[in-house]
């Protein structure tokens, strides 16, 4: 496999990993399993409600920065960085 193919494969793996987390926190914890999670509380928040209105958004932010950081590493490793 050429370096370009390996770079693209690694990129796809990273994106899929990030999108799994993206799906689990929003659609999973915030919608599909929100009612079950509501049995658990953090302070005045029911957990499902917290994920739907707060937690998923914080996770999205963290995910994008994690993705950007890992991609920069991949760019350098495969020598395709812009500088």
């Amino acid at each position: 496999m050429s370096d370009a193919q390996k770079y693209w494969k690694a990129n796809i793996r990273l994106v899929i990993g990030c999108l799994v987390v993206w799906f689990v926190v929003s659609f999973g914890c915030g919608i599909l399993f929100a009612q079950q999670l509501n049995g658990i509380r953090i302070g005045g928040y029911q957990l499902g409600f917290w994920f739907a209105q707060q937690g998923s958004i914080y996770t999205f932010v963290a995910l994008i920065f994690f993705y950007a950081w890992r991609m920069n590493q991949l760019d350098r490793k495969f020598n395709v960085s812009e500088d």
Binding site: L19, F49, A52
Partner: peptide
């Protein structure tokens, strides 16, 4: 949100989660 409560979460997640797709795809 004030009038729909939990159900309005769709707007909160929907209008922010799109940025993950935008950044990665």
């Amino acid at each position: 949100i004030a009038f729909k409560g939990f159900d309005a979460s769709v707007y909160l997640m929907g209008w922010t989660g799109g940025y993950c797709l935008l950044a990665m795809l």
